[in-house]
Design a protein around this nucleic acid. Structure first.
Ligand code: FES
Ligand code: FES
Lengths: 145, 145
DNA sequence: TTAATAAAGGACAATTTTATCCGATTTATA
DNA sequence: TATAAATCGGATAAAATTGTCCTTTATTAA
């Protein structure tokens, strides 16, 4: 609804990698896809994007896999992942589909829409991977059902 | 981003029809598509859905077209249009793509996501077509650029 | 009653998003 | 050094969304 499927997988994958990195484990795409219940090859593509954007770190070869440095778990916020995968339509897009959102020639929904989008933006900017991984670790939240 | 293209066209079309109905004018798909800058045939399909859902009223034949009764402009809220076109994923969907949003087995983003979605929901439930049409009439807002 | 006008609806086409497959590359270890 | 394990990256396929075309149906007005 709000994010593309690719973006949803990307966030779930990043949170899972963060959680495992906290335990000092590097994880493979196969394991990630298994644990977040996503298509393996598609997930691999998304992880490539996240790697290029320095959101996760990948290591090739045996004992390789994906990991996230402890300090990156704090500095990487959700908005970076969304931006890396879905681009900045979430920032620039008009709620009613006009070419771009523009306060000088606003669509009828502009004011109310901007209001909500601002909240969403703030939430994404303030939510770190670490924060999300913690809920998982404590067993309060789930990445699949 | 938030709504499908079909939904965006649907809302724009409904607002335009409302505005014209206020002037006592019935409008054709051709005119609507022209005025909201949307593909004609696709817009026609969407208007059929809105008609079936009693959100707009259609009349066939010469002098026919689409219209919205004055009282419906007040009672029809945006959430009805969104529901008619995009279904209720906006209500039931999980932000991270789990089968459904479920507070008993929440995804890591659940609390923050529900918060924002609730605001969106309220906004859609409280916004009437009349309200949106007024901004247009006064010349403060635009349906195309 | 006929001609013209407008929406309804079905079939089809194009585009975008989601998903798969497979060979190339990197790297640890036996 | 050979082998195997893992990501990378390109090509392709499937599915969903967006968009078009054309025939049918209803209705008005001459
Ligand atoms: S112009 Fe439509 S949301 Fe800003
Ligand atoms: S479970 Fe994910 S948003 Fe509620």
């Amino acid at each position: 609804m709000m994010f593309s499927k690719a973006c949803e997988y990307g966030i779930r994958a990043a949170v899972y990698i963060a959680l495992q990195s906290l335990e000092g484990r590097r994880v493979s795409v196969t394991e990630i896809a298994e644990e977040i219940d996503s298509p393996v090859a598609f997930t691999a593509k998304i992880l490539q994007q996240l790697n290029r954007n320095k959101i996760v770190h990948s290591v090739k070869g045996p004992t390789g896999g994906f990991e996230i440095e402890r300090e990156d778990m704090d500095s990487v916020k959700l908005n970076m992942i969304v931006k890396a995968i879905d681009g900045d339509q979430i920032y620039k897009g008009c709620g009613l589909g006009l070419k771009e959102c523009n306060a000088l020639q606003p669509c009828p929904l502009h004011d109310k829409f901007v209001d909500i989008r601002t909240n969403l933006k703030k939430m994404l900017q303030n939510t770190s991977l670490y924060e999300l991984a913690m809920g998982l670790e404590v067993g309060l939240t789930y990445l699949k059902r």
